[in-house]
């Protein structure tokens, strides 16, 4: 028996909007730790890892570890039927081939339940070790989204370079080139407006902008984004989900032939 009650139901709606274009089908894993997911895109170049910790739910009952295969487009269709202020409860019985999403309006005057068919998904689970990164950049998530969108109108790939001068995003295409440099800036009114660069050594890596733009669909989940880079590892683009966990995107770099 599984019953997870999330008072801030809009979080789950935002999570689905952030991942449904990257991944079609995924297994949601439920354990005592929380509600999690790890899934790759169809070309096995990008990966999303989601964790919503059990403590972040108002009520969290998960009698045994359960993996529920869901079509994310269908799940998104159902969650779009929840109001932004609604409380969302996810329910499933052991051995059932369906999951139920229950939506309660804040004043309890409307209660809806949507039952969705589960599916069997053979998913490959990658072991992602903890790593020391050569550079970690924290910046406003809206700024990162703006840069990715702007550069993708010029070129297909972005070179992200971190030096002691700052973090540089560069692209080139048929019409020309573009460079955006963000310097460390901690003299801001609000902490989430800061750009903070922790660099062990300079690093420069090339990535497909199409995926970067897909990751920025998580922008509504967090005011800041953390980008971790090492020359021999996929980039990690992390959006913290307040009080609950995170959504992390991994993208393999492009390497010169």
């Amino acid at each position: 028996m599984l019953e997870l009650r999330l008072v801030q139901g809009s979080l789950l709606k935002k999570v689905l909007e952030a991942i449904k274009d990257l991944v079609n089908d995924a297994n949601f894993d439920c354990s005592a730790t929380g509600f999690s997911l790890q899934a790759m895109d169809s070309s096995h170049v990008a990966l999303v890892a989601l964790l919503l910790r059990s403590e972040g739910f108002e009520h969290y009952r998960c009698d045994r570890n359960l993996s529920m295969g869901m079509n994310l487009n269908n799940m998104s269709k159902m969650l779009k039927c929840a109001g932004n202020d609604d409380i969302i409860t996810i329910k499933a019985d052991d051995g059932s081939d369906t999951v139920t999403f229950m939506f309660e309006s804040p004043n309890q005057d409307k209660i809806a339940d949507f039952e969705m068919k589960l599916m069997d998904i053979d998913s490959e689970h990658l072991g992602i070790p903890e790593a020391e990164y050569q550079a970690i950049v924290r910046m406003p998530s809206s700024e990162f989204a703006r840069i990715c969108k702007d550069l993708s109108s010029i070129g297909d790939t972005v070179v992200i370079s971190v030096t002691k001068e700052g973090v540089k995003f560069s692209t080139r295409g048929d019409i020309g080139t573009a460079n955006v440099v963000c310097r460390q800036n901690t003299t801001v009114d609000k902490p989430e407006e800061a750009t903070v660069i922790e660099m062990q050594e300079p690093v420069s890596l090339t990535f497909a902008l199409r995926y970067m733009n897909s990751f920025t669909k998580a922008t509504p989940l967090s005011g800041t984004v953390t980008i971790s880079l090492s020359s021999d590892l996929p980039i990690v683009v992390e959006y913290k989900i307040a009080e609950m966990g995170y959504i992390r995107f991994y993208l393999a770099p492009k390497i010169e032939d």
Partner: peptide, 14 residues
């Protein structure tokens, strides 16, 4: 030209 690596080049399958 750049060659797009796959994640399995960096992470092992569990």
């Amino acid at each position: 030209t750049c060659n797009q690596k796959k994640l399995s080049a960096f992470f092992s399958l569990n």
